[in-house]
Simulated scan of single mutants.
Amino acid sequence: MNSLTTPRPTPASPRPTASPSPALDQERIASLLQRHGALAVLVAVVLVSSFVFPSFGTLDNAQNIAVQASFISVVALGMTLVIITGGIDLSVGSVFALGGVLAAWASQYGLWAALLLPLVVCGAIGALNGLLIARAGMAPFIVTLATLLGARGLLLALTHEGATTYLVSRGSAFAELGQGTVGGFGYPVLIALALFAAGGVVLQRTSFGQSLFAVGGSSDAATLMGLPVARTRVLVYLLSGLLAGFAGALNAARLSSGVTIIGTGMELDAIAAVVIGGTLLVGGAGSVSGTLWGVLLLAVIQNLINQIGSLNSSYQSVVSGGFLIVVVVAQRYLARARRTR
């Protein structure tokens, strides 16, 4: 009986490993620059400034920068969520000031009253913005400009055209919330970091966060996917109002009074920080960590202007505007480069 011999299989030649194409490398670099450019600039500015100005790199100065940045960072966190959906919120500066006045007035009734009153009122303003934009189809610019004026008018009515300043009792629990420290850093700094950590988790790890990107990328496509586009937009404006009011309450606790003249132009600073941090103004892309670096970068610039001494604070607006123009132009270039790959 003849035995059948099975031919031995020839060893397979190893497949050549495909080297990453230059197009993919350029796209990856463009994406990294868009997301982490603000952090790279911040690190460079801090390193150079520490050598040029000996007092800049001290712990006391770092604590001062962190406290000053903590309030605008909370406002910018809410602005980040709004801009990711393709919207804008011009009312946050007035809502911030209104929240401080309400908190200072309510502080006579205890800590919880000082926190809840501004959250309820400012959250209602944010919800109104969202409903008019999402349900009535009105333009975000017009709606939030109207509530900017309305919130400022309400603030002036409550303070008798700014003649009345409500004070926070020193030593109260509410004052301690704004003035207490842990490890040399104030409670507002720790609260802001906790809010950013929560915002990062919500944005990157939840279906609601992914809905924000989808709505900002294309609301029509998000609707076809079955996403609740209108509800998502209402929620982000509600969150923006809540965060702005809460930041105002923290600021009132820090200053021990409800200052009526603050908050003017804060919405522009918040938008600048968000865009410098890599969030696209057209929506659909962004991160809360980038916003944090953008806020810190602007705070460091302000601190450097103070270190120089011969320049007044108005130069911060010049530098911030210059940064904003450069970042927007860079974003357009990077987005165009990614589309052509």
Rank of each mutant, 00 (worst) to 15 (best):
V318L: 09
A285I: 03
L311R: 01
V82R: 05
S313A: 14
Q34N: 14
L242Q: 09
L297T: 01
L158T: 01
A44D: 08
G200I: 10
Q179W: 01
L297P: 03
V168R: 06
F71T: 07
I83A: 03
L102Y: 02
A252K: 08
S310R: 09
Q108L: 03
A175R: 09
V67F: 04
V43M: 13
L268Y: 04
V75M: 05
A222Y: 07
G123I: 06
L268H: 01
T147P: 05
G126P: 10
P140T: 04
S310N: 07
R336M: 01
V300F: 11
A214C: 11
G263F: 02
A23D: 14
L296A: 09
A244G: 12
A270D: 06
G99W: 05
G321R: 00
W112F: 11
V45E: 08
L131H: 00
F246Y: 13
M266G: 03
G171T: 13
N303P: 02
R170M: 13
G184C: 12
W112G: 03
V168I: 04
G248A: 11
S172P: 08
I271D: 03
G186M: 05
F56M: 06
G321A: 00
G150N: 07
V41L: 15
A12M: 13
A285N: 02
G245Q: 10
A197P: 09
S317V: 01
G186K: 10
L203W: 02
L154R: 04
L281H: 04
S289H: 14
L145P: 04
G294D: 06
P228E: 11
L250G: 05
T85I: 04
N312C: 02
V45T: 11
S240K: 13
V328T: 02
A113F: 11
S207K: 10
Q210F: 05
L311Y: 10
N303M: 11
T144L: 07
G150A: 15
H36L: 14
I325S: 00
S3F: 03
L224Y: 12
G322L: 02
L32A: 15
F96C: 09
I261H: 11
L81T: 01
G162A: 05
P228C: 11
G309H: 06
L131N: 00
L32K: 14
G100V: 01
N129E: 10
I276P: 01
N129M: 07
R233Q: 15
A62N: 09
I72E: 10
I133K: 02
A38G: 08
G183E: 11
I262S: 12
A151L: 07
L4A: 14
A157G: 09
V215K: 06
G87M: 05
N312M: 03
A136T: 00
G87I: 03
A330G: 01
E27Q: 15
L155G: 01
L42R: 09
V259F: 08
R338Y: 00
M225V: 12
I83H: 02
V201W: 15
V48M: 14
T5F: 12
Q210R: 15
L156N: 05
W112A: 04
S313R: 09
Q316Y: 00
T164V: 12
V92M: 07
T58G: 13
S219Y: 00
S94C: 06
C122L: 06
L131T: 08
P16R: 15
A124K: 05
R231P: 02
G284W: 08
S19V: 14
A136Y: 06
N129P: 07
G258V: 04
A252C: 09
I72A: 02
L227D: 07
V182F: 14
T264N: 13
I301P: 00
E176A: 12
N306I: 02
